[in-house]
């Protein structure tokens, strides 16, 4: 059992305490750390053992709920999916960029969810239901076309790593496009045209400059830039078929 000493430098801010209402850095030292400990567990230890005022969001603790996106050593990640051995003994933790900070690592997620809601992120199919009372049919190959983008957990790691989004918060951002992609390429859905129209507008896909920060930032390993590219193509071609080539993303 390795027994490491790890230094944390955390970007803090508390609107209720004069003098602490502007961002500042605070250092904490933890001993008895295992290389396989998660950063989230260490932030918990700081909060519980040293300073209960440290504030962050978290829930599932294993990378599926999307609560704890933050910048760890300058890179967006979920704190519960980063191990100490991946980031070393000196760890810098900051809130994600581009959304207003409320307190410490907690940012205002409302602008992010507003963009999400703006792309019609829901299934539309107005056909009468099948007469046998059963499911609509779909081939596995058709389902695979949008499988990757169904993995999104709305953590905001991609959107808040995007320089175009930092520059202009009106841009819907990668996450909203990923969510739209999930429906645009679903063969059962009937509102692709409306979504493509929304995304063809000023604050839609064309604000993406293919900078590619989003793809490595995604904790779900979604091919975000590829998905955005496919939506761009669909807008240019005015149709959705023949665009998505299914590659098996899970080759390790």
């Amino acid at each position: 059992m390795a027994d490491l000493t790890v230094k944390f430098k955390i970007r803090r801010q508390n609107p209720e305490i004069p003098g602490k209402d502007k961002p500042y850095w605070q250092e904490f030292t933890l001993t008895g750390v295992e290389p396989t400990d998660r950063v989230l567990e260490m932030l918990h230890r700081i909060k519980w053992e040293q300073d209960g005022t440290l504030s962050l969001r978290r829930s599932c603790a294993h990378g599926v709920c999307g609560s704890d996106a933050m910048r760890i050593n300058g890179v967006n990640a979920l704190a519960c999916k980063v191990l100490i051995q991946d980031v070393g003994n000196e760890i810098m933790v900051e809130p994600i960029l581009g959304l207003p900070v409320i307190k410490d690592l907690i940012v205002d997620m409302e602008p992010f969810f507003d963009h999400y809601r703006s792309v019609m992120p829901y299934y539309v199919n107005n056909d009468p239901v099948p007469e046998d009372g059963r499911e609509r049919l779909q081939t596995q190959a058709d389902k695979d076309k949008f499988d990757d983008t169904t993995k999104c957990i709305l953590c905001a790691c991609c959107t808040t790593s995007c320089p175009s989004y930092w520059a202009n918060g009106k841009y819907v951002g990668p996450a909203a496009i990923v969510q739209a992609h999930r429906f645009i390429f679903d063969t059962r859905d009937q509102a692709a045209k409306e979504r493509l129209n929304i995304l063809a507008e000023e604050n839609g896909v064309w604000r993406c400059r293919t900078i590619y920060n989003c793809t490595p930032a995604c904790p779900r390993e979604i091919q975000v830039t590829k998905a955005i590219g496919e939506v761009k193509l669909a807008i240019q071609r005015g149709k959705t078929d023949g665009i998505v080539k299914v590659v098996h993303a899970h080759q390790h």
Binding site: Y122, Y123, Q138, T139, K143, T150
Partner: peptide, 20 residues
């Protein structure tokens, strides 16, 4: 479950295109 499919849930499919 049929209703979830009608809400758009992307179930895996059988070769007959039904819910796997």
């Amino acid at each position: 479950v049929i209703e979830l499919e009608r809400y758009g849930l992307p179930f895996d499919r059988t070769p007959e295109m039904r819910i796997s």
